[in-house]
Design a binder for these strands. Structure first.
Lengths: 130, 130
DNA sequence: TAGACTCATCGGAAATTTTCGAAATACAAA
DNA sequence: TTTGTATTTCGAAAATTTCCGATGAGTCTA
């Protein structure tokens, strides 16, 4: 599966990025839609989409389409991969990642439509929160 | 030791590079001088020096000066680190890395002065080989 | 069909990385 | 001190990456 230097370097590069690493750590424990990830990480949706493209290219995550949503998760059975295991073992201890996972718990408690849709509502919520 | 996202990303970036990864894999099993590494990998010495600077900055390798030589190796006791372990487990299976290690065996069979010194000699050897 | 929504891709400017010869530094031997 | 060798740092052009708003493609719902 992983048989040359270039491929391994590409995989390492894929996780050498704050957003991509946070996404990977998030998906380690749960399947999420793209918009849920964007909401949890508080970054633009296009950034999440690009992060996922790299992680997919590197073979870490896979997607599943359901209606208008795209659910992404770490490729099943891949958690045993020594490289991924080592990376996650470190990542899951980080406070930033822990904060993401806390927020993920809150997001998962709500219906997707509430979290994602309503751009207007989300923006005002954002404005009033601060 | 590793307590924030930025630090982990920096460490991953440090190994996300062909030369740096090859250097790390080389040093995993033996202490070598900079010029030996350059000879084994067949890359300019300044490139090796820069690779080592990054690996040192990321905390993977340490150096030991002995006369005019600088010997580098993976930080002792660090082999147990889960991240490094996962990375090395993958790297050591690659044909490119295996080839490096074979060449390392040959280089280590010679005195350092023979391998390193004599820039002139090394260059002519290079020229005649091709 | 029209309108709302999810997501991927595009544009393209800014920032970062890569590369290696050349110059600088450090040390040793003569 | 002078010469030679090992290593680091510099310079600077080329390549790559990062970032996010805007656009577009596909999907649901009314």
């Amino acid at each position: 599966m992983l048989d040359d230097l270039k491929t391994l370097v590409e995989r390492l590069k894929a996780v050498s990025h704050p957003i991509r690493l946070r996404v990977l750590a998030l998906l380690h424990s749960s399947e999420l839609s793209v918009c849920q990830v964007a909401e949890i990480l508080q970054v633009p949706q296009s950034s999440v989409s690009e992060a996922l493209r790299e992680l997919r290219r590197a073979g870490f995550v896979s997607e599943r389409k359901e209606g208008r949503w795209v659910f992404v998760s770490v490729i099943p059975g891949f958690e045993g991969d020594p490289l991924l295991k080592g990376i996650l073992m470190e990542a899951l201890r980080l406070p930033e990642v822990e904060a993401d996972r806390t927020r993920a718990g809150m997001v998962k408690g709500q219906a997707i439509a509430v979290v994602c849709g309503k751009v207007q509502a989300a923006e005002t919520k954002e404005a009033t929160r601060v």
